Simulated scan of single mutants.
Amino acid sequence: MLKTLLDGAVMMAYLSCALFFLRFHRQSRDRLFAFFSLAFALMGVHNLLTTVVGPDLDAERRYFLFVVRLVAYLLILGAIWDKNRAGRGTR
């Protein structure tokens, strides 16, 4: 019961961060903030899936849920790479 409550609080924090970065994307039109917003939304979805579906899966199949988190981390790395690559041509 307490674990479910804490997982919900962490999911709410991830989605709050996603909305925070989405607001900055709308103000600046910078793709970095859009990618960060999408990544944090994916991490919130991962947390939701882990809470809802995770206990029903056996340990051998639970690793499929972490693909969502891997995609989110790769999205953050890609956003940072894209931001640094875009800045190179302006010098």
Rank of each mutant, 00 (worst) to 15 (best):
M1N: 08
M1Y: 10
L2I: 13
K3A: 15
K3E: 15
L6V: 14
D7Q: 11
D7V: 06
A9R: 05
V10P: 03
M11Y: 01
M11P: 00
M11H: 02
M12T: 09
Y14W: 13
A18H: 04
F21I: 02
L22S: 13
R23A: 04
R23G: 03
R23I: 05
R23E: 05
F24N: 09
Q27R: 15
Q27K: 15
S28M: 07
R31G: 06
L32N: 01
F33R: 02
F33K: 02
A34P: 00
F35W: 06
F36G: 01
F36S: 07
F36K: 01
F36T: 10
F36D: 09
S37T: 01
S37I: 01
L38T: 11
L38N: 06
A41D: 01
L42D: 00
M43D: 01
V45F: 12
V45D: 00
H46L: 02
L48P: 00
L49G: 07
L49K: 05
L49Y: 07
T50H: 06
T51F: 00
V53T: 08
G54K: 04
D56S: 13
L57I: 05
R61K: 08
R61S: 09
L65V: 03
V68F: 08
R69W: 09
R69Q: 10
V71H: 01
A72T: 04
Y73H: 14
L74E: 07
L77S: 05
A79Q: 05
A79Y: 05
N84F: 14
R85Q: 13
R85V: 13
A86D: 13
G87W: 09
G87D: 14
G89H: 12
T90D: 06
R91T: 10
